[in-house]
Design a protein around this nucleic acid. Structure first.
Lengths: 79, 79
DNA sequence: CTCTATTTGTACGTATGTATG
DNA sequence: TCATACATACGTACAAATAGA
């Protein structure tokens, strides 16, 4: 495992912030543009990281608002 | 639920094939180019669908070979 | 209600790298 | 070395939703 993909590094970093308590449940993540500037990558990479975190239920993206940290098991709770 | 995104439709279709038995464990999915032609979409959409399925542990992509259907929960069962 | 700004979501296209055969 | 095929990465346009003025 020589190098880790950028999207994975970002996803891992965000998740670390959540576990560290820097980002609490219900807290909003920086916008795509913010993360893009912060990590100096393209939109695709940021979106990739966020997409994976969403699939894993770590965060939840709200259209027009932002991406928020999931409470706990607020994954696919349906309805 | 007006319309479902294309990547979700493809991911759902592939998953249906697995549940239907059309695609068995260890079986290889059509290549990105094949799926691209089959669904008439771009590479991004196909990769998006595959990425989500991989994150969910439904399939597993092998670099240089192809994408294969996971056995059961062969997700991250690390060694 | 309309207009505007912000932000996520979807979608297309392309280039390069890496791994298998 | 060459062909095939996934993986990573960059850039852009448009659509849809939310919020504030």
């Amino acid at each position: 495992m020589p190098v880790k993909p950028k999207w994975q590094q970002i996803a891992d970093h965000i998740r670390s912030q959540i576990e560290s308590g820097e980002l609490g449940p219900g807290d909003r993540l920086p916008s795509t543009a913010q993360l893009r500037d912060q990590y100096k990558v393209s939109t695709t990479v940021v979106r990739q990281a966020v997409l994976v975190l969403q699939t894993q239920g770590v965060v939840q993206g709200v259209h027009g608002l932002g991406v928020f940290v999931a409470d706990q098991d607020e994954t696919a709770g349906g309805s």
